[in-house]
Design a protein around this nucleic acid. Structure first.
Lengths: 231, 231
DNA sequence: GATTGACTCGTACAACGTACGATGCGATTG
DNA sequence: CAATCGCATCGTACGTTGTACGAGTCAATC
């Protein structure tokens, strides 16, 4: 009997280099981790977290359901890979070179949020999943820029996590509320029924009138002002 | 054929008043929404989100699996109710009366985070679930205090959501990382292997050395300072 | 031709949420 | 007293899921 506990003779868990298919012989596209992940992202975009089933994924790939398991340990890993693949970051354009640390951080974090909002399922996945190379890359960049901007070694972790917390909270909230605008409307209407109990937030139309992007940027600015010693 | 689409002749979705059992005849505890929710919380605490199965929940209640469905529409509602039940907030002690808005907000938000960390599953549930009365109550309180502290009507929603975002991000992150200390260790060790690629966060021991509570308070302070006009 | 290793997939199973309908029971009504 | 009715319970069964298992295909190597 062959090895069974761990992963068999498969590819490494995280693609080592940039995504490249090893052998694309000719007409029929071969099954590969890259194709599986790409199709999983498509499926997730189209149907949400609950819509990703191994059988359906296999169907879209023109393969049998069990064929996937040669390339992937289990469904969880599909989630891990799909999540990280969506969080790739193609460096800051000139900002970081120009020494504009604030611009560099804003750019990266806004891109982070935007990337996740482009794939709303990622927001609900990120918290419980492993830290893939793209996530780690962003954290590394964040740490490097903050450090260069004057944040002391002792405060670095705190600063990184504060920003992470804020970005994740904003993104997760936005993604989930966005998914169900009707729910928000229904919620606000339910609120109207109970306006006696919740007068303030009912009057402010908390669940409806909101400039999410503006709120995000404003709060991010406040945090950065506090975290980084003023030049 | 009887009505089928909606909920049958059941209790209202959210318990209207404080939790009270209607009729607790004597020896045998009768099945009730209150008992179901309480037991669900127990089960969730013990086994996590994935551990809550309708059959197991029924077992713990000494009932048949399908008996639950008289009191509850579906499993989702069990999650909704369990979540909200854990977020009850017994007002601010004296702070709010004393006009100490900062203390009142800090107290409520730290209690919010603490309540969720006491039941880590709640952190992964909150984003996608309905806003129950306890959550709405906290938001209402937050809005009222902020308003009283001088935040203008036009900025109120932004302030509330900024704080919500931050608290949720911090709590969700903390809860999920806390769930798997080994994972963090493993992650940091994997980092060590790749320290060439991630030197900054590796050196800072980002995944290990961290004062979560301190970071939370500090970031919260920064946000409040920025959001509320300084007296 | 025989062997090997990479890869595919049909079948099967266990676990889950829950639809359906039968059953028990206390209160109400005749 | 018996008949009726609404509330509440639960056994059975179905469809859907992830995936274990092992048989199958095919190209490269000896």
């Amino acid at each position: 009997m062959a090895a069974k506990g761990g992963s068999q003779g498969k590819r490494p868990q995280w693609p080592t280099g940039p995504l490249l298919s090893m052998q694309e012989t000719g007409s029929e596209p071969a099954l590969s981790i890259e194709r599986i992940v790409a199709t999983a992202v498509e499926l997730l975009d189209a149907e949400g977290v609950g819509g990703l089933k191994m059988r359906r994924l296999a169907d879209r790939l023109g393969a049998g359901a069990m064929s996937l398991y040669w390339h992937v340990d289990n469904k969880e890993q599909v989630f891990d890979l799909a999540l990280d693949s969506v969080l790739e970051y193609r460096g800051t354009p000139q900002s970081i070179e120009a020494g504009d640390w604030r611009g560099a951080i804003f750019h990266m974090l806004e891109d982070w949020r935007a990337s996740m909002l482009r794939h709303p399922w990622s927001a609900s996945l990120l918290p419980r999943r492993a830290l893939g190379p793209n996530i780690l890359g962003r954290l590394e960049l964040l740490g490097r820029v903050l450090s260069r901007a004057g944040v002391e070694e002792a405060d670095l972790n705190g600063a990184i996590w504060s920003l992470w917390n804020y970005v994740m909270g904003a993104t997760i909230t936005r993604a989930n509320f966005n998914l169900s605008d009707e729910d928000m409307l229904a919620g606000q209407q339910r609120l109207a029924h109970l306006s006696a109990q919740y007068p303030t937030i009912e009057r402010a139309r908390l669940l409806l009138d909101n400039d999410w992007d503006g709120v995000f940027r404003k709060g991010l600015g406040l945090l950065l002002d506090g975290l980084v010693p003023s030049r």
